[in-house]
Design a binder for these strands. Structure first.
Length: 121
DNA sequence: ACCGTGACCTACC
DNA sequence: AGGTAGGCCACGG
């Protein structure tokens, strides 16, 4: 984790907070894409930052900073292809199970039905 | 201040 | 139609 395992506390939560808000606003049974979020934030072409932001936020959550409601439904965030990219980060099939629990339909390939569950900020 | 990395996306060949 | 390459912004060291 040269640059992945970050832990910025104090200043620099600008981007993370923004992503957190958007992702937290995702309705149940709906999924959005990194690019859409990035574009909404203004980062536009830097969709990777969104995923990175989630990673950082997750780090905080894991650290125990989740005083209020630090539940970031990263499982509702997928790539442009509808694939659960961060599935590995979740720890196996937790992501898929969560989405399925919400009523999300999965394609035979294992991707989410963007046509029915695509939500845009 | 620069380089390297990152859960991506778009464009060109 | 498929594959490859580059780009974008942000953060750590």
């Amino acid at each position: 984790m040269t640059a992945g395992g970050n832990k910025k506390n104090g200043s620099g939560k600008d981007f993370y907070e923004r992503v957190f808000e958007v992702v937290a606003r995702i309705p149940e049974g709906k999924v959005t894409t990194y690019g859409a979020i990035a574009r909404h934030l203004g980062t536009g072409g830097s969709a990777r930052l969104v995923g990175w932001a989630l990673n950082s936020t997750l780090s905080e959550e894991k650290a125990g900073t989740n005083e209020g409601q630090t539940m970031l439904p990263c499982h509702r965030v997928v790539n442009r292809n509808g694939e659960l990219t961060g599935k590995a980060w979740f720890g196996g099939d937790v992501m898929e199970d969560l989405l399925r629990s919400e009523g999300v339909r999965f394609d035979p390939d294992g991707s989410v039905d963007m046509s029915r569950h695509y939500w845009e900020p």
